[in-house]
Structures are given as structure tokens and as C-alpha cells.
Design a protein around this nucleic acid. Sequence first.
DNA 1: ATACATTGTTTACACATGTAATCGAACGAG
DNA 2: CTCGTTCGATTACATGTGTAAACAATGTAT
Lengths: 120, 120
Amino acid sequence: MQISDAEWTVMNLIWESQPTAASDVIEQLAETHAWSAATIKTMLHRLVRKGALSATSSGRKYIYSCRVKRADCVLHASRSFLDRVFGGDTAPALLHLVESSKLTADQIDELKKLLDSMER
Amino acid sequence: MQISDAEWTVMNLIWESQPTAASDVIEQLAETHAWSAATIKTMLHRLVRKGALSATSSGRKYIYSCRVKRADCVLHASRSFLDRVFGGDTAPALLHLVESSKLTADQIDELKKLLDSMER
DNA sequence: ATACATTGTTTACACATGTAATCGAACGAG
DNA sequence: CTCGTTCGATTACATGTGTAAACAATGTAT
């Protein structure tokens, strides 16, 4: 199962607000993207068919929930991305990503703590 | 211009060995992927049409070179990926990626040095 | 009952991508 | 010269994706 670019937007929103009705999803995505309701409904329908989302009837509305864990999807997508773009060698990728990111002092500290813990 | 998953494999190889002839590309990719020569030739042709590669005639062979910098493509792909999967917030993404990567002690040191330099 | 609005499903179309065969031109060997 | 091989271009087909309209069913208001 592969989540497409546009579908990630939908999934992220539902991960953060599930369980949620289509009308809510549509309302929020219409604000941030130039998608018609029809487009969003199609994406929801396809995600259900793919097995990423489940829909349970509530009256005639469907309430959507995620059937896959965000962490699992993120991990899979991340690995796939790193493999593809960096040929599987993680470290140069991370160096590059860190270098090109704007991080706060707190965030830098947090990363350093994480690296410390990995060293032991 | 968007480089597809399979095309990244081709681009990575050419970035590392350019300028290079199609026969060389085909030979090397055939070892690592179950692609026919026809498949690889198509990808090369599409990448030229996209503007990612250039091809200069040498006799009747084409010599392929990249028209785009690896660093630029990586940066663009990385940002796009982070935006899509993590909703634009880089730090949690990096934490996640670091946490799920197997890094050597040297690589950890290198990352820490980079973070140190970003703090100043 | 009828008309309208809402909701999910189905249909539509264009393009990109993965995979590869086929074709036409150029080259080399006999 | 002919024939076979090689090389890039063209063609092919299936699937996925982006975008959205159209349709059918259900609910609400008059």
C-alpha cells in the first residue's frame, strides 16, 4: 500500500483529528488547498479502498479513522525516501537534512541528547 | 520537473559516473535491477525530455550527463518529502529519522559536530 | 407530496510512471 | 552488396494519481 503525495495531506489531517466526518475534512482542506469537495471525497474513497482508512456509518455520514499507524507509515516512507534519493546510506542524508534545516536551540539540544543516548 | 522513484536510481548512477554511455548504464543497472535494456533506455529518454539529463552524440552512441545538480535535486526532494510526510515541521522528522537510523560512532560524532556549529 | 440539499459512489479524463516491445537508422562483418 | 547487430526513438499497455463532475440515495424543509 502506497500513500500518494496528496493522500499524505489527507492522512495527516485525519491522524490528527480522527475519528472525523468527511465534511470536517473537506472544510479544513478546502481552506489550505485549492481542492474541490469532489476531489477530497475521491481521495477519501481511494484511501478506504487501499486499506489506509476505515469508514463507519453514522446516520448517512461516514466517520473516517486511520487503519494504519502514523509511525509505521512515516517509517516506511522515510526509509523508502532515503533509499531512493541517497542510495541507502543514511548518514549523508541526515547530515544534509540537518544542514539544510532551520532548527531552534532547543531542537538542536534535543537532537544532541538523542545522539548521546545512541552512543551508549 | 519531478524525478520519479525509478528515475532516481538512474540519476544516482549517472551522477556518480557521468559522462557515461547508455550501454554502461544499462550494464550496471541490469545487475542490480530486473529491468530490460528497453526499460532503461526509456527512462533515459524521458529524463532527457524532462531536462534532467543531456545527451551528446559520440558516433552513434549517446553520452549522458546530468543537467541538474545532485545537491539541488536532493534538497528539493528532501524538502518536499518533509513537507508532505511531516507537515513542514522539520525537527520531529529529523528526530524520527535519526532515531530509526543505524549510525556508526563516527557518524554520530559528525552529526554532533554539525549541530555544534549550527549552535554558534 | 415535492423540491432542494447533502453525502457517498461512480464515472471521467489527462498525465505520469513502470515496464517493455517494436521500429528505423546506422554500423560492422562477411 | 547483404545481412546481422546495435542504438536511440517511437509505440504500447496497465496502473496510479490528480482533479473533478455526474449520479444515486438519503435527509430536511415547505
